[in-house]
């Protein structure tokens, strides 16, 4: 899990991600080979390229290894309680629609304890980008089974192998009403970054699943080797199929991973629908909230 500290650099070298990080919080807690860090690199790259002003972005996380992301990014960050980031993000967005609200959390946080919030935010087309790092386990609490653990995989609470059918996250997101759905692995850095950028720039509920390794717990318990072995697996077993029907992209234990952009559609967001409905019924009596100007006007997308 831990290695010796790398030798001190002989000249000042800076990673382009640094400007987005709270460097006083580094070194981070993530294990060597963990996939969360590379997903964060893609995220900051996407943010940079999206040209959205930094001050207009707010990031919300739940609790977990992935949940620590909010604390490392030099953005307005909201580290909430376990499972609740989407609910917090809802209030945040509605109180200030000018903000770009991003939820960054783990599979357990978003789909076990937070599952209810996920399905309802997607149904409402609440304007936010949800990024789920799916490492198929509860990392922070030591490797228990999650709603995305593949069948037969071992976890501390499924010592005899998992027998519960996991969620197929893209299918779930689409069925609940997400307008943008994509899946990449932490190996697909360029594609992932591009997808995040598209999602950030798209109004409505946008969802990206990042399949990522947890070498310390999930891989070790299932004898899948180190982080590098996960990269090999992702490279060899991934197939990019943009537009694939989401019902066909379920993941099995060490199975093929179908990646790509599966859904990219459009419908009114909750805010837009709300303004339109109230304006239609209340007419002149309707008052638009102070910082909502522009909401409900036709948009060009």
């Amino acid at each position: 899990m831990s290695t010796q500290a790398p030798p001190a650099p002989t000249c000042e070298v800076h990673n382009p991600t640094e400007q987005w990080l709270r460097m006083d919080r580094i070194p981070h807690i993530w294990c060597p080979g963990c996939g969360i860090g590379s997903s964060v690199n893609c995220f900051t790259d996407a943010l940079e390229k999206s040209k959205i002003p930094r001050d207009n972005v707010s990031i919300v996380s739940g609790i977990g290894c992935t949940g620590r992301t909010a604390g490392y990014l030099k953005l307005d960050s909201f580290h909430t309680t376990h499972g609740r980031p989407i609910a917090f993000a809802t209030g945040l967005k509605l109180a200030n629609p000018k903000l770009k609200v991003v939820v960054y959390s783990g599979d357990g946080d978003l789909f076990a304890i937070g599952g209810n919030h996920f399905i309802h935010a997607a149904r409402r087309n609440m304007d936010m980008t949800v990024i789920c790092v799916n490492n198929m386990t509860y990392g922070m609490t030591g490797g228990q089974v999650t709603p995305t653990t593949p069948l037969t995989a071992k976890a501390t609470t499924s010592p005899y192998g998992n027998f519960e059918e996991p969620f197929n996250l893209p299918y779930l997101a689409e069925s609940c009403g997400a307008v943008y759905v994509a899946r990449w692995t932490s190996f697909h850095v360029r594609q992932l970054s591009k997808s995040i950028r598209e999602a950030l720039l798209k109004p409505g509920f946008t969802f990206i699943e990042v399949v990522a390794p947890c070498p310390t717990l999930y891989a070790r318990r299932n004898r899948l080797g180190a982080g590098i072995d996960a990269m090999k697996y992702y490279r060899e077993q991934s197939e990019i199929k943009n537009g694939a029907p989401t019902r066909d992209v379920a993941l099995g234990f060490q199975s093929k991973i179908i990646c790509g952009k599966f859904v990219d559609t459009s419908r009114p967001t909750w805010l837009e629908a709300q303004v339109q409905q109230h304006r239609a019924v209340l007419g002149d009596k309707f008052t638009l909230a102070e910082n909502w100007e522009g909401v409900g006007e036709p948009r060009e997308d």
């Binding site: 357990g108 076990a112 304890i113 509860y138 922070m140 609490t141 030591g142 228990q144 501390t156 609470t157 499924s158 010592p159 005899y160």
Partner: peptide, 19 residues
């Protein structure tokens, strides 16, 4: 149960033994 430190090992122990 639901995993949470420092209680998780009760759920884990039960997962091993109760079956």
């Amino acid at each position: 149960g639901y995993p949470i430190t420092p209680a998780s090992s009760i759920l884990e122990t039960m997962s091993r033994h109760l079956p």
